[in-house]
């Protein structure tokens, strides 16, 4: 069953067509890769799905049988889509624990006025949320930093925290925007391992944008390739690897097939 299905998804900024009639079909429980050269519309795709941008009219995004293309971001999160950002966008002056607790926001069991009227109820609920979040931070290896401002973490820890914040939203669908950017190859492997175990633990469907092709080829079950805002290929890693349109998009027309295989293998 498809968890997320886009039909004719388009987005233009003035004269620039960032996405054009993109049809993507993401199976529940799968791990789906989204690749393409710089400027091909991967991030725009994420921004449109998560509601940061509103798609052009005529676009349709079906998530879990809800039409979400015209909803504001917080409604989309409530339905069960969460995402990370390429530039992380952590709340740097808040503590690590507060960062993940913000992620939990839409599951808060009390209303915005209860702090005034029912102080003890709010306190109990918050303590319960804290315990749950600390447990998750332990899983990510960040528990000992829980009360430090997020701005004092290292780059790798920040990536883990942004992942933790997304998980705290209890999503069904997790969109990861270049989770491995700026990490060393060893750390990228480690991170992908963490992502896979999170996927198992929380029963997630994952869409991952990544430039490191080796990672995508090894972990994803299906891959969609975008170029200039259009979908040029979709299929299993093997199919995509041998697709002529993909090779052209990445390396241009001149290179011979054999060279390209070597590049990808390397």
């Amino acid at each position: 069953m498809a968890l997320l299905e886009t039909k004719g998804l388009s987005k233009s900024f003035g004269g620039v067509q960032a996405l054009q009639d993109v049809d993507v079909h993401i199976e529940e429980g799968s791990i789906h890769g989204l690749i393409g050269p710089n400027g091909s519309g991967k991030s725009t795709f994420f921004n449109v799905i998560s509601g940061v941008y509103r798609p052009d009219s005529g676009s349709s995004v079906l998530f879990d049988n809800h039409e979400i293309s015209q909803l504001p971001p917080h409604k989309i999160t409530e339905l069960g889509i969460s995402r990370t950002f390429q530039l992380l966008r952590l709340f740097l002056e808040m503590t690590v624990l507060e960062n993940v607790m913000v992620g939990y926001h839409c599951h808060t069991p009390y209303g915005f006025l209860s702090p005034i009227l029912q102080g003890s109820k709010v306190r109990e609920a918050d303590e319960k949320i804290q315990d749950e979040m600390i447990e998750m931070l332990q899983f990510l290896g960040l528990a000992s930093y829980a009360n430090l401002p997020a701005g004092e973490l290292s780059g790798g820890q920040r990536r883990l925290l942004s992942l933790g914040r997304a998980i705290a939203m209890k999503p069904k669908l997790l969109l990861l925007d270049e989770p491995g950017a700026g990490l060393s190859p060893v750390n990228v492997d480690h991170l992908m391992h963490t992502i896979l175990s999170l996927k198992e633990k929380y029963k997630l469907t994952v869409v991952v944008v990544e430039h490191i092709l080796k990672v995508v080829m090894n972990t994803c079950e299906r891959i969609t390739v975008l170029d200039h805002g259009q979908k040029i290929a979709e299929g299993s890693p093997e199919e995509v690897k041998n697709d002529h349109a993909v090779i052209e998009a990445y390396l241009g027309r001149e290179m011979a097939d054999e060279d390209i295989r070597q590049v990808i293998r390397a």
Binding site: L90, V102, H105, P115, M169
Partner: peptide
């Protein structure tokens, strides 16, 4: 009382990064 609850955390998240806050369900 207000600022230690989820309402206060929502305010701070908006201060730090409004886009990330909206995606976090605020």
């Amino acid at each position: 009382a207000i600022l230690r609850s989820s309402t206060g955390r929502a305010f701070q998240a908006i201060r730090e990064d409004a886009i990330a806050a909206s995606v976090a369900g605020i």
